[in-house]
């Protein structure tokens, strides 16, 4: 089934012939790479508080709803948000901590949690909402980063349901994209960067929200930085 070897060899031979200036050894290559200019801004200049405020502002520009809470208020805040959503059937990723699922402070009539333990696609499709954690928040562009750990769920979970609630901790927020990449010493096998809800401008450049992905994005920002 594999490709005929000739094409691979043919292409690589053509490339080698075309790039006579290529580095001759791994160390030469590493040296050439290290010498590339990188004078762009790596680290942000905002205070921690200003950085979080910028993240909130960017998310709101995307029409996301942002709610702040203290770490001990998370369960109540989550329950209140779910109650306010008017939806009932929610999915949580396999590694969702038990505190998310407790809704005692705001008992919601008919609320139904399904934990993703290999749910079939149509079961996810039937869900009205999804709740996950995140890996990182990038304030400069209002981006939520998912590396799809067991608390962030499989990629499809944050795609099919129309309502997405993301729990982001203040300590996860960085100001610039390069700061996120420098935190990523071990590059992830899977990653999704979300900057606002699904959108298109394909018809006369008119921005329409919610083409295929979730139309509603709610972010609970857990202020785990308050004691600093």
């Amino acid at each position: 089934m594999n490709q005929p070897v000739p094409s691979r060899k043919l292409i690589l031979d053509r490339i080698r012939a075309a790039t006579s200036s290529a580095a001759q050894s791994a160390s030469q290559l590493a040296e050439a790479y290290a010498a590339l200019p990188r004078a762009y801004i790596r680290h942000g200049s905002l205070s921690a508080q200003a950085c979080i405020e910028l993240m909130i502002q960017r998310l709101r520009e995307y029409d996301a709803e942002v709610v702040e809470c203290a770490p001990e208020e998370l369960a109540d805040t989550l329950a209140a948000q779910l109650a306010a959503s008017g939806r009932h059937r929610f999915v949580a990723p396999s590694g969702a901590p038990p505190e998310w699922l407790v809704t005692s402070a705001h008992p919601i009539k008919g609320l139904e949690w399904t934990i993703d333990r290999g749910l079939a696609i149509d079961e996810i499709e039937k869900a009205e909402g999804i709740v996950t954690a995140a890996t990182c928040g990038i304030a400069d562009s209002g981006t939520i980063v998912l590396h799809h750990s067991s608390r962030e769920g499989r990629r499809v979970l944050t795609l099919l349901p129309d309502y997405y609630l993301c729990i982001l901790r203040a300590s996860q927020i960085v100001e610039t994209l390069p700061e996120y990449f420098s935190r990523c010493q071990q590059p992830p096998a899977l990653a999704t960067y979300i900057s606002g809800p699904s959108a298109t401008a394909d018809i006369e450049m008119t921005r329409i929200k919610g083409v295929h992905g979730p139309r509603i994005l709610v972010v609970i920002l857990v202020r785990d930085d308050a004691n600093k």
Binding site: R155, L190, A191, Y193, S195, G213
Partner: peptide
């Protein structure tokens, strides 16, 4: 490309991840 700070979705993957995709 589109005059956005970041496009709404960026997907990165390497090879195959069991149970996902």
């Amino acid at each position: 490309a589109t005059g956005e700070r970041m496009n709404p979705y960026t997907s990165l993957w390497s090879g195959v991840t069991p149970g996902d995709g």
